[in-house]
Structures are given as C-alpha cells and as structure tokens.
C-alpha cells in the first residue's frame, strides 16, 4: 500500500510545486497588467499596432481589437472584433485578417511568461509566434485582394 501513497505524493507535490512557480510569475504580472490598464496602456499599444495594420492591409480601426487580442487573449479580442463589426467599423477583409493574426498569436504576455516559468525560451517563443502570424496574415492579405 505504501507505494500507492508514494506515487500520489510524488504526483500531488510535483503538481503543487509547478503551480507555485507559475504563481510567482503570474501574480506580479497580473498586478502589472492591471496598472497598465489603469494607465490606458492599451490605447498606446493600439497606437503601436497601427503601422502593423497598414502593413497587413487592414483598416486603422482594427488596431484596437488587435491590441486587445494580443494582450488579453482570443476571447476578449473576438468580443471587441464582433463589437467593432456590429458598429460598422470593421470591413470584412479586416475582420478576416485580424482574426487570422489573433488565431495564430494571442495572449502573448501571459502565455509567454507562464511557458517561461516551466523552462521555455520566452524570447524565441514570442519571436516565432509574431513572425509566423505576420507572414501568414501578409500572404492572406495579398490573396484576398
């Protein structure tokens, strides 16, 4: 019977330890992100995304959904995309291109830090994701013309 307890102990302790290491990163990160939200950093990131939208061939209005998806994830990004499309701020081509970009690359801050916590090379991870999403969206934008 003792060996069953040993396996359970190894599994539970190992799992708790992994979560603990991730918590050490996620807690300060979430506080920083909340401060960033308060300082309207999202607007600034959207401003930064504007050249990106030109390059992708999407409307200027797509910068905000792009920034939201990049920072907070696909579900939030999709929410803003649907909202913008309803308000008529987003044409069909922009909608498809922004969705394509975000499907490949979203929640980059949180995901990158969490994957770094378990030992991944964060800089490489982020670079590969961004470049792949950019290339794919660029190709699609030519094809959609």
């Amino acid at each position: 019977m003792a060996w069953i307890l040993n396996i359970l102990e190894e599994g539970l302790l190992g799992g708790i330890k992994s979560v603990f290491y991730i918590a050490l990163i996620v807690l300060p990160l979430m506080i920083t992100m909340e401060i960033g939200r308060e300082l309207n950093l999202l607007e600034k990131i959207a401003e930064f995304c504007k050249p990106l939208t030109r390059w992708m061939g999407t409307s200027k209005e797509s910068a905000f959904p792009l920034a939201v998806g990049l920072v907070f994830g696909l579900a939030y990004g999709a929410g803003v995309i649907i909202q913008s499309a309803k308000e008529g701020n987003l044409d069909k081509k922009s909608l498809i291109l922004v969705s394509t970009f975000l499907v490949c690359c979203h929640a980059v801050i949180e995901d990158t830090f969490i994957l770094m916590a378990i030992g991944a090379n964060g800089a490489l991870l982020l670079t590969v994701r961004l470049i792949a999403a950019l290339i794919l969206t660029y190709i699609l934008s030519k094809y959609l013309k």
Partner: peptide, 26 residues
C-alpha cells in the same frame, strides 16, 4: 484588482495542472 485576477488565474491553472501532473505521474 490585479492580485485578485492573479489569484483567479493561479486557481484556474491549479485546477488543471495538478490533476494532469498526478495523472501522468501515475
């Protein structure tokens, strides 16, 4: 608010990571 978001994320993570870790250890 940030700390609350962080704690929620850690709880969400824990609910998945701990059972999966245990399952694979077994």
């Amino acid at each position: 608010r940030g700390a609350k978001n962080g704690i929620n994320t850690v709880l969400e993570l824990g609910k998945v990571i701990i059972p999966v870790y245990l399952f694979i250890t077994i």
